[in-house]
Design a protein around this nucleic acid. Sequence first.
DNA 1: ATTACTACTCACCGAGTAA
DNA 2: TTTACTCGGTGAGTAGTAA
Lengths: 233, 233
Amino acid sequence: MSSFNVDAREWKHFFTLYKLAEMGARSRTIKVSTEYLSEKMGVSQQTASRNLIELDKKAWIKRTITPEGCLIKITETGVAELKKLYSNLRLIMEAAYPPSVTLEGVLFTGLGEGAYYVTRDEYRKQFMEKLGFDPYPGTLNLKLTSEYDKKARSELETYPGIEIEGFKDESRTFGNVKCYPVVINNKMKGAVIFALRSHYNSSVLEIIAPTYLRSQLKLKDGHKVKVEVLILP
Amino acid sequence: MSSFNVDAREWKHFFTLYKLAEMGARSRTIKVSTEYLSEKMGVSQQTASRNLIELDKKAWIKRTITPEGCLIKITETGVAELKKLYSNLRLIMEAAYPPSVTLEGVLFTGLGEGAYYVTRDEYRKQFMEKLGFDPYPGTLNLKLTSEYDKKARSELETYPGIEIEGFKDESRTFGNVKCYPVVINNKMKGAVIFALRSHYNSSVLEIIAPTYLRSQLKLKDGHKVKVEVLILP
DNA sequence: ATTACTACTCACCGAGTAA
DNA sequence: TTTACTCGGTGAGTAGTAA
């Protein structure tokens, strides 16, 4: 989910921008005195004035000072910021599923099977196409310990994900795989994969990524790993 | 427009609530540590913790503390607050017209005709039905002086308003009237009326209200009056 | 009337730390 | 590990006022 990575301090600017938009400054140039704006915002005239100066500096508004007040219009940039907030809020409020689910598990070494499956060309082709990366040959295995995480994982499986189709080769059948994009430890992108008939039970998470995560994130068996699973809108 | 009459200080709570919703706390109970939340918000762990306490106090979230983090779910009240923000933003972003237009004019005494028209029963009935009040017998006349206000008034006429139908009595014909709800001087509710064939030119605003505004707002000829015209969504 | 500068206050934030 | 207290510094808000 394209979340707002804004500093908390920046939110006062959104508040001001929102108030200006309420007065119509998105579609028209409005005339407003800092005194009037300050009443609408519940702050002092001086603060309203400073907020306008700051928004102007950010180029979120175009401001022209006249003896009877300021002429103000929200710029393209400002409208884009409001739109970002709006569309994120729409996802949050209208989506049937939560935007993301964060799980935590303990790293352990698997049987090495993951590498075999992940490197099958038919899977690889689909990973590249549907996830956008060529997976490192191996999976990161996380053991879910808390009741909360196990429950969250089972809920997760009911949400729509990216479907990887199974196939046959001369000797055997490879099943369908469902996956979700994830962010590992708030840093690295990857995907969690759910083999529909996994040899692991439902308290394990298998992660693939374009790089060798153990070295990239300096992970060792027993370390706790946080996985933010992104649900498709 | 049902604007947010929140104090500017309250917006940090919306920011926190928004971040929690991004993590799925609208539809599920999520487990999150104050440390993790603080990273997502770009503030310190202590600030995140305090924000959660404040949100809990407001009953916008339900919070249960566990040794591994907080279990958090946004309450009905919290969801309602987010929804209010969301639907206001939707109006602002998707409406073809601005939510409101604020005009300023100078009070003057008209010819007294307003009182005659406003007290016609056929008009009165429709005012009560469509505006929700029985107008004081008389109109408040404002002269628009600045170019900005005249331009804004002419734009206003192109926006959809409340239509009051004309009628005939035994002697003459009374034309259609278009009106918009207004807030006068940020305090009193009323409506601006545009007689489609007005004897005034387009630099005058005629206001009606349930009470005698001149005494309610201590207004005298020559005073400046601010009128916030509310456009229908 | 306006806007917005300079002081100054105070509330908020975060470091340290207890539980 | 957690959460959340105290407390001190800082930056946001306001009063006064100039332009």
